[in-house]
Amino acid sequence: MIFKPIMLPEEFVRLGGLGEDLTARPFNYLTAFVRKLYGGGNMMRKVLFVFILIIFFGLVAEETGETITAEEIIKTMTETLNPEQSEAVMEMTITTSGDQERTFVYKAYSKNGGEKSLMKYLEPGRVKNQSILMLNNADDIWMYFPGTNRVRKLATHAKKQKVQGSDFSYEDLGSSNEFEDDYKSVLLGEEEKEGQLCYKLKLTGKENSNAGYSRLFVWVEKENYVPLVIDYYHEKDPELLEKELVLTEVKTIDGIPTPMKMVMYNKLDNTKTSMSFRELTYDVNLPDNLFTEMGMKK
């Protein structure tokens, strides 16, 4: 919270008839102006004073961030979730509707705030060494199959499909800008969620965008701008809750608050997928050529 004193314009100073140059010291100016107003006993001047006070404190409040916009919250949240670069080992566990579990372990690299990302599977054996490269926020996706040394490019219709049968789509994992680019956001207020005071936002899919959902409700922790819960509503039916993402175990890694665990609940299929970091660092300098076909195979 940074308090910025408002510098009043010269015309306004002259309006008060003050003899001294106080423009560089506004609070002295205010005190002098109050003195002059009340000293004169003029009703009009008193009304004017109250009016000025309202404007003054309104402006101050805005400058201090009390009326932060939904767009600013989403932008800060996106930046928090997508640091410039990262390298991680992640574990993804899928729980099917029949309570069967499948666990995948993969290395994940990202650059340019998540615009480029690369996943390389380490476990289990049936997907070992497979990799997925996503560029331009998952607008371009390539998959590498080591058994045949073949790279296949996926069209954008695959973006919304499940990754390895999980409840995360390619878009969920590879798109860092979807909240800002594909949705209009509105701040609904503040609400406690998961024991934390949060901003509650409603995001509605923009027309002609690639928004995969009709609307989202996002609870963003006020203190560090980490989303704690995101509710995803079906693309065709805005009343139908399709998925819920719950992010927990927020830790500060290399100075950046990070939810170490996230669970996506699929409300329609009655399945869930949890993802957690085994290792994570943001303090890396990844070469651009890691995010190429050659990088996928290495």
């Binding site: 040394n149 070469p287 050529n289 050659m294």
Partner: peptide, 19 residues
Amino acid sequence: ISNSRIACIFGKQQISLGT
């Protein structure tokens, strides 16, 4: 054997061409 821009592979290896 590879560096950031060049990769050289010797031996019996998978070669898959085409889309």
